[in-house]
Amino acid sequence: MKRILLLCLSVLLVVGFPTTGQAAPSIQAESYIMADAVTGKILLQSEADVSLPPASMTKLMTLYLVRRQIELKNLTWDQKIKPSAKVLKLANTSGIARVPVKAKTYTVREMYNAAF
């Protein structure tokens, strides 16, 4: 039941509530993008190509998903992870990451703790 409610709320947030010809909302952000999750159509955007560090909610969701996968036994704290070339490139881009990532193997626990 909770999943159905969350799905309905997500759809309303992406598709939108019925409007009466109102203008787009005023968004106070350095950059943003909102896309339809099904079609990929961009609904709103401003400076969408600007590289910025991930928002706190992104980090919290990532940490939640890691913990959930550990609880489901799909992942372990000692499992080894090697950052991809794309991750290494992003980590060395000024303004993107505050934690240095090197071309070495890390454990899930080390990566998890680095988020703090």
Rank of each mutant, 00 (worst) to 15 (best):
K89F: 10
T19S: 14
E110F: 03
S51W: 12
V15K: 07
V50T: 14
M1L: 13
M61Q: 11
I27Q: 10
G21P: 00
A55M: 04
E47W: 02
C8Y: 11
K2M: 14
L9Q: 06
V11R: 09
K80E: 11
L90N: 08
S84L: 12
C8F: 12
T76F: 06
V99H: 14
T39E: 09
I70A: 00
L65N: 11
I42D: 09
M1R: 07
G40H: 09
S84D: 12
S10F: 15
I96Q: 13
L12D: 01
F116E: 12
P53K: 04
L44P: 02
Q28S: 14
K73N: 08
Q79W: 01
E30T: 12
T39G: 03
A103I: 03
L63F: 03
L13W: 05
N113K: 11
V66A: 03
L60I: 00
A35E: 11
R67C: 02
S31Y: 06
A35C: 11
A23Y: 06
W77R: 07
Y64W: 13
V50K: 15
A24N: 11
S84P: 03
S46M: 10
V15Y: 08
T107M: 03
S46G: 09
N74C: 06
K89Y: 07
P25G: 04
A97W: 02
L44G: 03
E71W: 02
C8H: 05
Y64S: 01
Y106I: 06
R68C: 02
A23N: 09
L6K: 14
R109P: 01
T105C: 05
S31M: 04
T62S: 06
V14H: 10
R109W: 01
V99D: 01
E71I: 05
